[in-house]
Design a protein around this nucleic acid. Sequence first.
DNA 1: AACACGCTGACTGTAAACAGTCGACCTCTG
DNA 2: CAGAGGTCGACTGTTTACAGTCAGCGTGTT
Lengths: 218, 218
Amino acid sequence: MAATATLLGLEKKSLREQALAALRTAITSGALEPGRHLVETELSEMLQISRGTLREALRQLQQEGLVSAGTRGRLSVRHLDAKEIRDIYSVRAALESLAARTLCELPDRQHVIGSLRAAIQAMEASTHGTLEERVESDLDFHRTMCRLTGNETLLHSWESLEGSIRMSIMFAGLEKGVRNMSVDRHNDIVAAIETGDATLARNTIREHMDSAAAVLVA
Amino acid sequence: MAATATLLGLEKKSLREQALAALRTAITSGALEPGRHLVETELSEMLQISRGTLREALRQLQQEGLVSAGTRGRLSVRHLDAKEIRDIYSVRAALESLAARTLCELPDRQHVIGSLRAAIQAMEASTHGTLEERVESDLDFHRTMCRLTGNETLLHSWESLEGSIRMSIMFAGLEKGVRNMSVDRHNDIVAAIETGDATLARNTIREHMDSAAAVLVA
DNA sequence: AACACGCTGACTGTAAACAGTCGACCTCTG
DNA sequence: CAGAGGTCGACTGTTTACAGTCAGCGTGTT
């Protein structure tokens, strides 16, 4: 069964895609805890899908860095130590700095600024919600920033990193994680982009990410 | 059959891994031309493997950006236009800039510089070889730079981009591609890293990548 | 007690078969 | 002739079955 968009906007997702989403959530939420050996026969039973379908989903999660291969093809949920979290955030900072600089160089930034402000409003709204919602709206802001560059490769690279980012936040604990997700900091980022000063924007992102990583590994 | 390292250093690779490598090479060399519909039944026959095994390999290639999904799950070899090549090189520059800066910040760089100089010597040797060899040694230099940072996430991100980089070079033609793979430019990069000046190193990489992209899309 | 060997169950890798979707083509009807 | 409907082959998505590897455990030998 292929993914199908129907007239009413309903979308049938393939079992593989559904499994991928479910596993991604289970891993990044900690339900499948770090180091946990992912046994195909168990998971396929839990998810009520065949092992072949599950393998395809697991391959993608492996590529995304959520799953690591041990001896003999055994997969387990990846465990992140402090260095790895810092490394992830370094790469994240590099990608988002590129995004910010790219947005500064756009001839017409108004539409972009509008979208980013909308994302910040969503962040503001989320401060009355759960910690999960706050994390979601924060990541959505950053993803939006990458998407608005129009650089598909950048968005794809960021999205490939997203799982690792989520796991880093989960490792630290949500309460710690949201400590760097304030609306003010994100307003600073948008303001920097609005000035069109690419160096300022890059530095603002860099500081934001350095600070976030420091909190996560403390 | 799992991948197995034996006493003599021989390594049995799984069929999936072998298929992955073969397909990657076929795509990045242009043997499987851009836009070509990848029919599972054909490919599995060509490679003499089952469709299930092939699908796992194709999923990874899709994740690497070498293969794009069309309607109804149909996969085809990705086609890159000039913008996409520039985008790929922007992301590449961001990642390698991070690598260069990270290497500048290492307390003891001598071992690192040695490895980079060895990679340059391999590049020098390759100037007497084929164009393919020159491309290989160039990419090896850059991969080495990322690996030496010790940042696994960075290396993985770079390697996930490698296929797209190779395809960009293939699109332009190898002759054009190697135009920016001179030993001098790479000596400049190493020299910049040797100074420990992160900004200089970053700028050297940035210029190198900007110049490479410009040549590829000209 | 320590070591070697054999067996078994658990697990991964892979192939083959089944099932559903859809485009192309053909036939029929007005 | 144009349009509708049906059929069939090509293809993707998924399941089931087969095969090989290896860790753990039990047994026998020294």
